[in-house]
Nucleic acid binder design. Structure first.
Length: 265
DNA sequence: CTAAAATCCTGGTGGC
DNA sequence: TGCCACCAGGATTTTA
């Protein structure tokens, strides 16, 4: 469930211990998580220094000294640890990256959904992603343009990474609630005022998540506490914080969806 | 085109 | 207490 705010929090925490370090080796304990050539990963990564670490959507991007890019996607349960190489290994660690200072970057992922990519061109991994919703140069007008010639319901569209990058199930529900829009609405019926509310709601929800260092759910502890500030997500049967009506849970686009049937129209 | 379902996965949970 | 069915979901793939 790491979404944009959770990944951003992880990225910020890794810059201090990792930027400037050089990879010296890779050990793979779950090969399916490597989505590019394992041989190339093991031959090309060692010797490359980490120049900077950034985020694109829900991907972590390691910019490497030879021009390659290492991408990590945490998917549902992934987490990244920086630990001394003599520290006992958690049994859910799937990939181990050796560093030049006796530490290791360990990709821990109980459910094995996480992904690793090493590419010479970032577009091979993130080329089709939609725009980042938070930068100042992503304007309300840019947002409105995204809806042209779009159809279907709102919720699945918000989850579509080629539409907007970084929004997942939690922040899609929170954003729709803040914007007071029913997630079942077909998007070609949304009027300008609603798109404006949604634009600000998405940014508000994501920024609130970042402020609280993301949400810690599912026994996956990252230190964030945004889960204590959810307005609708996971609050099925509880009263709406706005009007007191009972928060409903439905399945939309195959995903659990939480909303207030009174506030959200 | 949209939409739904299946797929990958395992820890946690609820029922009996 | 133990067993088991079932659910969670990001992204992709398949089917309708």
């Amino acid at each position: 469930m790491p979404e944009l705010p959770e990944v951003e929090t992880v990225v910020r925490g890794l810059r201090g211990p990792l930027v400037g370090r050089t990879f010296t080796g890779v050990t793979i304990t779950w090969p399916n998580s490597i989505r590019t050539s394992i041989l190339e990963l093991q031959s090309r990564l060692p010797g490359q220094r980490i120049e900077k670490i950034t985020r694109r959507g829900k991907y972590l991007q390691f910019h490497l000294s030879e021009g390659d890019m290492l991408f990590l996607h945490l998917k549902m349960t992934g987490d990244l640890l920086v630990e001394p190489e003599d520290e006992p290994l958690n049994p859910h660690v799937r990939t181990i990256f050796d560093l030049d200072n006796g530490h290791q970057l360990r990709f821990k992922d109980p459910r094995k959904f996480g992904r690793v990519y090493l590419v010479d061109n970032a577009d091979k991994v993130v080329g089709k992603l939609g725009p980042e919703p938070l930068p100042d140069d992503f304007t309300l007008d840019d947002f409105k343009v995204l809806f042209r010639r779009r159809s279907g319901r709102l919720k699945p569209l918000l989850l579509n990474q080629e539409f907007i990058a970084g929004v997942g199930n939690i922040y899609a529900d929170e954003s729709s609630f803040i914007a007071k829009i029913d997630p079942r609405r077909t998007v070609d019926t949304l009027i300008d005022a609603e798109l404006e509310r949604l634009y600000y709601a998405i940014r508000q929800a994501l920024n609130a998540g970042i402020t609280h260092k993301g949400a810690s759910l599912d026994a996956v502890y990252r230190g964030g506490e945004f889960q204590n500030h959810f307005q609708v997500y996971g609050r099925t049967g509880e009263p709406c914080l706005n009007c007191g009506a009972t928060i409903q849970r439905i399945v939309l686009g195959g995903r659990s969806t939480h909303f207030c049937p009174v506030c959200q129209t």
